[in-house]
């Protein structure tokens, strides 16, 4: 995929260091769409479909942003979030964690998730390009 091909509307973040994104998403096609849009916009995206491996990758602390699906195999996104936010289990995490889900939560559960995460996205509401815009606006 050429970032400067016709129709491309992204602003490559050439002046800034490349931001690394970990996308923990078990729906392969959605992961691919996100990776395409993010890489086109100048991010370096790593895809992971498995919850346990996703957590291990996140704990290496090499990412700036983690897109975390709540329904992933072997370890749920809620568990991953909790472990990443627990100082006794995750020494340091510079990454912003953005929850991406199509699941409807009970209000109390959702509020609890939102408190721990840096952002909350209903996937069906945003196209990959809109998600890139959302991430661009994260400090």
């Amino acid at each position: 995929m050429q970032p400067d091909q016709p129709g491309q509307t992204f602003q490559p973040a050439s002046a800034k260091p490349t931001k690394k994104v970990l996308c923990i998403e078990d729906e392969h096609f959605i992961g691919e769409l996100y990776k395409r849009a993010l890489d086109n916009a100048g991010y370096a995206t790593t895809l992971e479909v498995d919850g346990v491996r996703g957590l291990e990758l996140a704990q290496t602390d090499q990412f700036d942003i983690i897109l975390l699906d709540l329904m992933v195999p072997n370890l749920t996104g809620i568990d991953i979030l909790r472990i990443l936010r627990d100082p006794t289990k995750t020494a340091h995490l510079k990454a912003k964690i953005i929850i991406t889900t199509n699941l409807e939560q009970r209000e109390d559960v959702r509020q609890d998730i939102e408190k721990q995460a840096d952002g909350y996205i209903v996937k069906a509401e945003l196209t990959p390009r809109e998600i890139v815009e959302f991430l661009n606006n994260i400090e």
Binding site: P6, F29, L33, R36, A37, N102, K123, A124, T127, R129
Partner: peptide
């Protein structure tokens, strides 16, 4: 709703990608 949203996410994602590719 969850089951409908997943294909919708894909549909909207691919439509956007197609728009970008076709120009």
């Amino acid at each position: 709703v969850h089951e409908l949203r997943t294909p919708l996410t894909l549909l909207r994602g691919y439509i956007e990608a197609l728009q970008e590719e076709i120009g």
